[in-house]
Structure formats: C-alpha cells, structure tokens
Nucleic acid binder design. Structure first.
Length: 225
DNA sequence: GCGACAG
DNA sequence: ATCTTGTCGC
C-alpha cells in the first residue's frame, strides 16, 4: 500500500476518520507500566526545521533512562485539529531510535478530546500499536469547570455531550493540565499515571524532559541553511 | 454567519 | 510553537 502523506486539510481529515477506527479503548493497560516515553517537538524560528525528542523514563522513579531525538523539516501547516500531521513523522523517527519499547506513550497534546476524537496521542498510539495518552497544557474544544485547588483534583472535559478527558491539577494551586486517552488505556489509568509522573512540576516529567531536550538540541544546532 | 481553536 | 525581563509569591 502506498501511504502518501496528506497534503490538504480535507485529505488529512479523511485519514483521521479512517485511522480512528483502529483506536482501541476497550482494554486497560496489560499491567502496571514500568516505563513510559515522553514526546515533544520544538520549532526553529524563521525556518521549517524542527527537533523531535523521545525520552524513556522509569515510572517508579520518574527518572530519565535514555533520550533520543530526530531533526527534520515540517511539511504540513499548523491547523487546529491536524497537529499530528505536522509532528508525527519526526516523533516516530525519534521513537525508533529508542531501542526499548516503552509501555506507554505520553504525548504533548490531546488524545480523544479532539473534534474528530483522534488527536495526536491517538494517532501515535495507532501507528505504533502502543498504549498512549495525551497531556495538553491549554484548553482546546472541550468544556470544563475548574477543578478544586488541591493536587490530584480533577473535573471532566465534556465535548458533544460526552466525557472525553479530565482537567487535572498536578500541583496544588497551579493551572490544570488536560488529560485524555489515546489508545489502549483507560481515563482513570491515564489520570493516575499523569499524577504519578508529575511529582514536582505542573507538566509531567516525560513531556517536560522531552521539551527540555528538543529545545536544547535545537539551540545547539548549526544555523539553518 | 461568527467565534474558537492542541502545538 | 516562538519572540522575551523582571517580578510577585510561596
């Protein structure tokens, strides 16, 4: 099958509609995850160059075990709802450099809390076959009430009458993050994992570390040609 | 029709 | 996403 990357918005939306049927949310995690991979992408100003990072962490300690990255040029514009077509190619490249298969993918963005129920986290989950979840930093299309102030408090993200995720307070008195499932994981599991991986900062360690790495690499890259 | 809109 | 210093608060 010749999988051609979508070029137009209409094509990309059709790809999402097709891929979303491969999302499996009927099964929980096989067991307590031992490792996770945090994923993120940094963009260079004034060029199309990007750095994608994939960082492997132990869940028990929330410490980094190994880290990889991939450099590339984006070929798809940022369109709300189509973020995956911009970042997935590079995230997959960085992931492949990780010789270990993580138990869960922690993505920077949304999973099913998406207009077509197929955000970046679902996309990566389906393409890799791995359990995945999304942790976004800002609201998107779902509605929510502010959760209580205490760390661990959460409130449902509602869209089109259905609960598609949770606004989760990872630190007391700090803005919530937005958790949604991507593939092969439950919402309660995704919430618990997010909290376990955010012992100190608002952003859970996996994506926080991936963000730091992608930024550092980008900063030390030779000037764009 | 208008507004809103992950990164 | 990215451009950007200091500053308020715990």
């Amino acid at each position: 099958m010749t999988e051609v990357a979508p070029v137009t918005v209409a094509e990309a939306e059709r790809v999402q509609e097709a891929l979303r049927r491969r999302v499996d949310l009927t099964i929980p995690l096989p067991g307590p995850p031992a490792t996770v991979a945090g994923l993120d992408v940094s963009y260079e100003v004034g060029s199309d160059r990007v750095v994608a990072a994939a960082v492997l962490l132990d869940v028990a300690t929330a410490r980094v075990r190994r880290a990889e990255f991939a450099v590339g040029e984006v070929n798809f514009p940022y369109v709300p709802g189509l973020l995956a077509f911009r970042e997935v190619p590079f995230l997959l490249a960085a992931l492949e450099k990780l010789t270990v298969r993580p138990d869960v993918l922690v993505c920077d963005g949304y999973g099913v809390a998406h207009p077509r129920r197929f955000g970046l986290a679902c996309h990566l989950g389906v393409l890799t076959g791995l359990p995945s979840l999304g942790v976004a930093k800002t609201p998107f299309t779902a509605r929510f009430d502010p959760p209580e102030q205490a760390r661990g408090a959460w409130s449902p993200l509602v869209d089109g009458g259905e609960t598609v995720g949770r606004a989760v307070r990872t630190q007391t008195g700090v803005k919530p993050v937005f958790v949604s499932v991507g593939h092969r994981i439950g919402l309660a599991e995704a919430t618990g994992l997010t909290l376990a991986l955010a012992p100190r900062y608002r952003i859970p360690e996996p994506t926080r570390q991936a963000d730091l790495l992608s930024r550092t690499v980008l900063r030390e890259l030779p000037p764009a040609g």
